[in-house]
Design a protein around this nucleic acid. Sequence first.
DNA 1: GCCGTTTTCGGCCCGACTGTTTTCAGTCG
Length: 585
Amino acid sequence: MTNADVAALFEHLADLLEYEGENQFRIRAYRSAARTIAAETESLAAIRHSTTRSLADLEGIGRDLAGKIETILESGRLPALDELSARVPAVVFDLFRIPGLGPKKVRQLVQSLGIDSLDGLEAACRAGLVRGMRGFGEKTEASILKNLAFVRSTVQERLLWEEADAILARLLVWMESCPGLDRIEGAGSWRRGCETVGDIDVLAISLSPATVMDHFHHWQETSEVIAAGDTKSSIRGPGGVQIDLRVIPPASFGAAWQYFTGSKEHNIRVRSRARERGLSLNEYGIHSLVVTPDVFPTLPAATEEDVYSAVGLPWIPPELREGRGEIHLAAEGLLPALITVADIRGDLHMHTTDTDGEDTLAEMVRGAIERGLEYIAITDHSQRVTMAHGLDETRLRRQWERIDLLNEALAADGASPIVVLKGIEVDMLEKGGLDLPDRVLEDAEWVVASLHYGQGQPRAQITSRILEAVEHPAVSVIGHPTGRLINRRPAYDVDMEAVVEAAARTGTFLEINATPRRLDLNDLHAAAAQRAGVAIVISTDAHSIRGLGAMGCGVLQARRAGLQAADVVNTLPLAALRSLLRSRH
DNA sequence: GCCGTTTTCGGCCCGACTGTTTTCAGTCG
C-alpha cells in the first residue's frame, strides 16, 4: 500500500461524502489529508514505525485520520469507504466528470430521475425530463448534452507542461496585438512548472477588459467560448484545452498573479496567515480587517512581493508553491536559491545516429556548442536494446575513437569550446547484470545505467536489478530511475527508498531525465534523494539537436524539488566533475 | 475532520459566472 494508494482512498471517500451532502469542511479535511499523503516522500508505514515522527505530525492529519491510516496499512481497507461505496451508485463518478455537474445536481439526477448511466442521462435530457426539475432549466439540459459529448469524445488527459507552454506562447503572441493591453502573463500550474497542466490560466492587466476579452475570443485557435463575464472569460483552445483569462487593473496585479498562480493549498495557507495578521487577501488586494493606527485599510498589492511582505514572508518562487512546507521555510528565511538553466554546464545523456538518434555525433556536438555547453557525454544504447540498434563492444570502441579524434580537432581549434565524454547508456539486463563487460564500462568516462526491459517484474526483482547497477563501481548515474512515461505508462514497481539509500552510500548519481514525457525522477523523489545526500544529474536524453532544448524542463522539475545548483552534478566545471567521479567508491 | 498565544468550541480563503430565480444556489478555480 503506497502513499498514493492511501491518498486515493481518501479522495474517493471525499467524493462519496460530497455526494451525500456531508459537511464541506469534513470533506476538505479528507482532501487535504490526501494531498499531504500524496506529497509525502517517506512511506506512511515508515512514519508509523518511526521514533521521531508520528502520523498525526503530518499537516492536516489528526487522531481520527491517523487511526484510519493505521487501519488501511494493516488491512488494506478503509471501512468507512466500503460502507459508503455500498450505498452510492457507481454512476456518480461518471456524472462528476461532466462540467457543470456538482454534487447537488448529480444527487438530484440520480435520486429524482433514477439516472444510472451516461446513456440514461442523455436519454433523459432528450426526453426533456431534466429541465422540469427544480434548479434545472432548458439551458442546463442543453449544457449537459453538449458536455456529455465532450466527455465522451476527448480522452481526459492533462497536457504535458511543454505542450501547454507551446500553446501559451502562441496565445501570447496573438494577444500582443490587442489594443489597451498593458501586460499579460501565464499563471496557474504552468507557472508553477507542474509536469502536467490541466487548464491554462492567463492574467492580463488592462483598464478595458471588454476589449481584451473580445480579442481573446477571436484568437484563431479558439474553438468555443465557454464563459464570458465582465473580467473573466474561458475558452476552449487547441485539443479542447480550457484557457481561463482574467483581466485586472494594474494596482491589483501582484495580488491577482499570486492568487492565480496558486496552488490552492498554498493560497489557503497564505490567506490563513493573512487572517492571523488581521488582514484579508483576495485577487484584488490586501485589506485590513481591523483599523489600527499602523495598518492602512488597503495595502499595496501591485507586485507579488507586496503580497508576501504583507504576511511577513519573502517572495516564494512559483515552483515551490504547493503547500508542502514552503511557507514555513520562507518564514524561517530558509528558502533555497533554486537552480537555473544558466547554472547548467554540461549535458550527460544523449544519443546519435549510431543507435536511435536522429542526428550524427558531429551534429549533436555542434548543437551542444550552440547551446553554450562546456561538456557533453555521448551515451548511445548498448546491444540489448535491439530496436535502437544498440552498440556492442566493437562498435562502441569505434565510436570512442571518433570521439577522441573529434576532441583533438576541437582542442586544435584553439580555445576548445567543448569536451565530449566517451559514454554509454548500458542496459540493466532482465536476468540481472549489465549489458556490456566490466572491461568496457571501466574504459568509459561516463556510464548511464538504465532499465528498459522486464518492466513488469515484481518489486523485489526490479529493485534488485537497479541496486546492482547502483553498487557497480563503473556506473556513474541511474538513468530515468522509475521508467514512467507521463499519461502512457506507470513507473515500474521499485523500492525508491532502497535505491536512494544505496545511491547515497555508494556516491552513484540519480538522473532527472528532462524529456517532457519522462521527467524522471519526479519532483518528490528528487527532493527525497537530495535530502538523503544523493547528487543529481539533470540530462536531456536528447535523440536530436532539438531534444537538447529539454534541459529547461528538467531544471523546472529540479526547482520544484527545491534543488540548488550545488545539488546538481552537471553544474560543476568539467575538472571538478572528473575529480568527483574519481573520488567515488 | 482539523486546529489552537482569542485553545476543547467554533471557526475553517474568497470571488466570478451561469442559470434559474426574482435574491440566490450551485459550480468552479
